[in-house]
Design a protein around this nucleic acid. Structure first.
Length: 444
RNA sequence: GUGGGCGUAGCUCAGCUGGUGAGAGCGCCAGACUGUGGAUCUGGAGGUCGGGGGUUCAAAUCCCCUCGCCCACCCCA
């Protein structure tokens, strides 16, 4: 029996925190550069706020909090841990209607899902959301794609793609193919698996559902029309073929034309964005353009995903505000980054080695002087330990400098300063300590 | 929720179809080096073989249950 954290959650050790903090800093910088401001909300939300927004399956994955205290109420849940950051934002918008629009915020906090853990999947994980509320302009959607691109680029990724599609086009597509309304979702989900299971897989999936065979054939015909090449051209040609007959389809195609143009003007390279007719995204609340980013050969699914959700805020009792946003998965970014060089750097600058208890007071004073000079510094906490052990500790932990305080030094009013990497040791008068530390910091 | 794999010292693992006292490497501790680190050498500590039950003269090794981890499905960051 090992004292492991609960299934699907993890402890974050110092070096991991440093890595995560570095990623968060980069993500924040990009978000802020587009004019987004921070927001935080509670981990807990009322259950009626959370449920009915994501879809039936996802509702099952919400962690529910049992009532406490009141007799007879045990077993009932009225609160849950937030499942994502979009619904909490929508609630905030419904509650704070005086915020200037468009309201642009980012939010970096953990969310919880009662899923079975897997590679790149946890029960507690941090999402980095950016959202723009209060404008229906496709320009806002284009900005989301641009933010995705800039963020992934800033993180140092080279080989990534952003897939874009439109819920209205998907809906029109299903109508055109003759899919009954109640089976639209199943058919769309089958298509969404294309990248994973391939053409035959989608065909099998459609066959296994109750989608009528002619409708399934029509879906496959459109998806794999050999006349077209190049995903963007393909997309627009295919979409136009059926869109004209449906209001939704026409709106969607018009949006996508604008989106393509805007994204280009945002400076996103054309080969990064692809318009994928099969890409669907699972959450119920999306209503317009949807986007998903993944790193090629990443093996952890998408690193970011999002879309337009024009009805969600009204659904929560707020005003009829259009909104769009996207979310990055911090743990997936970390997983993908893990293959790369990630320097440690979680050690203090200086270790003060204490010769014995008789000089403890002096050692503590020296340490305080070093900290006052601006360096991070720790004192070895067992004053009776051999110096060899204290040096070994500094070495193992990666502390670059050791200051030795012993009886001889105290008598002379000096300390020994050793540079472990260079194996050089110099005697430094206590009075000069601040200057020497400043010099050290200047070099590191 | 469904399917599969795995659980042996702090870590990574070896232990063939059940059979003499449960191992290796790394790490840790101590000493060689009585005020100074990463090398080497020597010695040492540390394991109810995840837990419970069963089969057997005998089980880490076979069977059942259970817990945990991992992978895949579902869905998703």
């Amino acid at each position: 029996m090992k004292p492991l954290p609960p299934k699907g959650t993890r402890d974050y050790l110092p070096a991991q925190i440093r890595t995560r903090a570095g990623v968060i800093e980069t993500v924040k910088r990009v978000f802020e550069s587009f004019g987004y401001a921070p927001l935080e909300t509670p981990a807990l939300e009322r259950l009626d706020v959370l449920t009915g927004k994501y879809g039936d399956e996802a509702d099952q994955l919400i962690f529910r909090i049992l009532k406490r205290g009141a007799a007879g109420e045990r077993g009932e849940a009225d609160l849950g841990l937030r499942y994502d950051l979009t619904v909490p934002l929508a609630r905030v918008m419904a509650a704070n209607q005086d915020l200037p629009k468009p309201f642009k915020r980012y939010q970096i906090q953990p969310v919880w899902r009662a899923e079975r853990p897997q590679k790149g999947r946890f029960r507690e994980f941090v999402q980095c959301d950016v959202d723009c509320v209060g404008t229906a302009s496709v320009l806002a959607d284009a900005e989301m794609v641009a933010v995705m691109h800039e963020t992934l680029a800033a993180l140092g990724f080279k080989n990534y793609r952003i897939s874009v599609n439109h819920r209205k086009i998907l809906s029109a597509f299903m109508d055109y193919a003759g899919v009954p309304a109640e089976l639209k979702f199943a058919a769309i989900r089958a298509m969404d698996k294309l990248d994973k299971v391939g053409r035959d897989g989608v065909e099998a999936e459609l066959a296994a559902s109750d989608v009528p065979e002619p409708a399934a054939d029509e879906i496959m015909n459109v998806l794999f029309d050999p006349k077209n090449s190049g995903r963007f051209n393909y997309y627009l040609t295919a979409a136009q073929a059926f869109a004209g007959d449906y209001d939704e389809g026409r709106e969607g195609v018009a949006d996508m034309h604008n989106l393509a143009e805007y994204v280009h003007h945002f400076g996103v390279p054309d080969d990064v964005v692809s318009f994928d007719l099969h890409m669907a995204r699972g959450l119920d609340y999306y209503t317009g353009p949807i986007y998903e980013a993944f790193v090629v050969e990443g093996g952890v699914g998408s690193v970011a995903g999002g879309g337009r959700y024009d009805q969600l805020i009204a659904q929560l009792g707020g005003p009829d505000l259009p909104a769009t946003g996207t979310s990055f998965g911090l743990e997936r970014i970390i997983t993908l980054l893990a293959d790369r060089e990630t320097a440690g750097g979680d050690a203090a600058n200086v270790l003060v080695a204490v010769y014995d208890k008789s000089v403890l007071q002096d050692a503590l004073e020296v340490a305080a002087e070093i900290r006052a000079a601006g360096a991070t510094c720790e004192v070895y906490l067992e004053p009776s330990a051999k110096l060899a052990k204290q040096f070994g500790y500094a070495d193992a932990k990666g502390i670059p400098f050791v200051v030795v305080v012993g009886p001889d030094e105290v008598a002379k009013g000096v300390v020994q300063l050793k540079d472990l990497a260079k194996r050089e040791q110099v005697e430094v008068p206590r009075a000069d300590l601040a200057a020497v530390v400043a010099n050290i910091l200047g070099r590191t």
